[in-house]
Design a protein around this nucleic acid. Structure first.
Lengths: 218, 218
DNA sequence: CCGCTCGGTCAACGCTTGTAGAGTGAAGCG
DNA sequence: CGCTTCACTCTACAAGCGTTGACCGAGCGG
């Protein structure tokens, strides 16, 4: 009853030059992959825009110009479709010579304000109303927090500071990308970064040889 | 199948006085008000816990031990029920001798981390997936932002700074109250406040080394 | 050239949801 | 005491949802 499609090779993302594939350009398999990718794409966009519950299989199918039953045949379940659609690049591939913690934080969430992957937006959109998305978000956020905390001095509540920094950035992202608050939408990304850097520094650098400068002495 | 015998609503049991007592305390109107309040209460709690879509009229009615049709009769519409339930005390009544901006911000959102009104939680929970809640949230957040911005120097992007501060706190609240991130749940509220104060100060006080605006603290 | 495979469609089921309207029985008032 | 009122319940409906199984037609191996 529950036709689970055999693990297809991880699709999507990136030009997949089929290695040693003598398949013609529009062969049967190619078309199938294309359709599946299209469905996945539209699903991701709709999930990011409306969230899990308000996105119907029928709407996804219509957006991909296929029959609803086909979506079911491919993914078996709406939940599975969601998970497949969301499974896309959460990790910061950079990791190179990133300077401070604030910059890394901004890079991981803040700086991509202009365009962070739709899968992430879909998860953010649904995480407050869907248990699966909530679990996914808790997991991803927990990893982020742990990663940030690892770079903080161990004697000053690194986990808590990291959690505050990450969730604060999540809130800003929500206000910007999901709620479309005008005050945030009208600001260029680098301005946001410039304003946030000192605040994040204050969160992550406890007391660098005394209280922060500028504290008006009594 | 779900016959719920009407329990005696007033906790005044004991030696039952004769029902002939024309107790005005539990008059018809009083009972009606009590029922309506109970429905509103349960609705608020469920909306805060599951969000608008996943909260059904039937569930609210069951939690309030009444018939679903009664909920409809009282509120006419699920949307209306939501709006009535959410309409509750957003404004900080304090406003007294609050010192700095950071403290005021923390008071309005952060410090109440332990217990901020369920109506607010319901709005937060639903704002990403329900248009009405989103509008409500945009409105409330906009007011908050404007109020904070009014206390910032006018020449340094007050709206943007205020928006960043407010949305950051919203993110932290979400992570704490709605997502239940362990790193945040295990921390006492005053520790959060202590960590956040300098960060908020960094956000709201632009460059202390620079030319101080004429505003001098009394 | 035939028949199996398989991408894709059609029509339908069962369930839950918000919502409407008729009904009921006790409280209130004359 | 009898009529009205009103809080409250029962039953039902229409719509939308995820999901299913039968079906069709073109590709492709034999």
């Amino acid at each position: 009853m529950n036709r689970v499609p055999p693990d297809p090779p991880p699709p999507s993302s990136g030009t997949g030059p089929s290695p040693a594939a003598p398949v013609s350009s529009t062969s049967r398999a190619a078309r199938r992959r294309a359709t599946e990718g299209r469905v996945l794409d539209r699903a991701r966009a709709l999930f990011a825009e409306r969230g899990f519950e308000r996105t119907t299989i029928r709407a996804v199918a219509a957006a991909a110009e296929v029959d609803p039953a086909l979506v079911m045949q491919y993914f078996g379940t709406k939940r599975n479709l969601f998970e497949q659609a969301v499974r896309a690049v959460p990790e910061p591939a950079a990791g190179a010579g990133t300077d401070d913690l604030p910059d890394r934080l901004l890079a991981s969430l803040g700086l991509k304000l202009g365009g962070l992957p739709e899968g992430t937006l879909a998860t953010l959109r649904s995480m407050l109303t869907d248990p699966t998305a909530a679990e996914h978000a808790r997991e991803a956020l927990g990893a982020q927090i742990a990663s940030v905390a690892a770079a903080l001095p161990a004697d000053e509540d690194p986990e808590l500071r990291a959690a505050l920094a990450v969730t604060a950035l999540v809130g800003i992202t929500i206000g910007h990308q999901l709620l479309h608050l005008p005050a945030l939408r009208d600001a260029p990304a680098d301005r946001l970064a410039a304003l946030l850097r000192p605040a994040l520094a204050a969160l992550t650098e406890p007391h660098p040889a005394g209280p922060a400068p500028g504290e008006s002495a009594p």
